[in-house]
Design a protein around this nucleic acid. Structure first.
Lengths: 215, 215
DNA sequence: TAGATTGTTAATCGATTAACAATC
DNA sequence: TAGATTGTTAATCGATTAACAATC
């Protein structure tokens, strides 16, 4: 007997959302190979997960397959792109124009995935004004607030040294950004409305060495 | 009544192992700030997880704290380093000397975390022989097998284009490597004894945009 | 002693999987 | 029709959390 009228939680587990980009990536790879349909079983084998999990994950969002046949790859791609809101191009602000920042600015594949680096910033006067990436110029980090507004950016990538990361993050938050991809090896303190994801190769290396023994 | 004599599974959940590097990273940060002790509560607040989880995770490996006091940071760091096998330096092979590979080769902080890039390889004859990183020279990928043996490497980082990734991975496996950190946006097919971890910024971006609406 | 915090247990919560009716 | 595969349910499995005795 439910007397509670409020919708308790129709919300989809975050862990499911986290797998969708990987599904999408794999489907696009299959599409590139000229494939037109696939099955949860095939996808699962590709990804090393169970077909049941894939079907369950997708079932949170609708019915995308056909019994006996499987999934039309193009159709499922488009659906996943809609679900993930990457049926458009999101402008991204890159902070930090060092070696890593330069690599990120040079990366050509963001565009086809729904993202475009529209501005690169650094604090180093030596770097400000230098060209970077494709048609960009390193801008003064001091102009962050204004540029965020001008460009309508919500997402930032931080490629700055660890010692600068929290300070930079504070400024990003103050400038109104709500999504940060952080390459600095530090857990940031941010308000609850800001989402941060982390990329730290050392975390992966150390995870792997747990299972290794010296040769 | 257990009649089964075989140890069923004293093995520690992989998800627990995956958090240890983050704990270690945070503890070292606290140590750098001159702090000597911390508590599961403080750590949990830093990391946005519950203190119970931290205590439970650590309890898989022993007792590292003192009631009423908490954890000695230096001691816990050392213990975690031992557990993760990073109380030594692991040689790492970097494959791909493009923009991203160069950034990885330049990154100074691997050493203090237990890793050293000992060789950088590429297929491009234009690149082979060029200096990269600190005291390294880009080597011919064709010499992989020999170099892996000479250097006693078990771990590789792949910073190659997606279209080359599976082929490169096959060669890494053939050369005897068992741990791969893959920056290419593709799920690799490898034998069961090889562990692969992935870094793909697009996966993180797309995870974040699920929660965003256009401004 | 009083206060704080651990390590551990048991309960809760949530995620994965097996199985199968539906149906292409 | 026979074979294949979906979407979904219920069961299983595993991870997280709350709570607390132990004890520094």
């Amino acid at each position: 007997m439910k007397h509670d009228r409020t919708q308790p939680k129709p919300s989809i587990p975050d862990i499911v959302i986290g797998r969708l980009p990987v599904y999408l990536r794999t489907l696009r790879l299959l599409a590139d190979e000229g494939r037109e349909v696939t099955s949860s079983q095939e996808l699962g084998e590709h990804l090393g997960i169970s077909s049941a999990q894939i079907r369950k994950d997708l079932s949170h969002f609708g019915e995308f397959g056909k019994q006996g046949t499987g999934y039309n790859i193009d159709f499922l791609c488009r659906q996943l792109q809609k679900i993930l809101n990457v049926d458009r191009i999101w402008p991204v602000m890159l902070v930090g124009a060092g070696s890593l920042g330069t690599a990120i600015a040079n990366y050509q594949e963001f565009e086809s995935s729904g993202f475009r680096i529209v501005s690169v910033m650094d604090e180093d006067p030596q770097k400000i004004g230098q060209p970077i990436g494709i048609g960009l110029v390193i801008e003064n980090f001091a102009t962050l607030q204004r540029r965020v507004q001008e460009l309508g950016v919500q997402i930032a990538v931080m490629a700055v040294p660890a010692h600068a990361a929290q300070r930079v993050a504070n400024q990003l938050v103050e400038a109104g950004l709500n999504s940060i991809l952080c390459y600095a090896p530090i857990t940031l303190a941010v308000p609850a409305h800001v989402r941060v994801e982390y990329i730290d190769p050392v975390v992966h290396f150390q995870h792997m060495t747990y299972y290794l023994r010296a040769e």
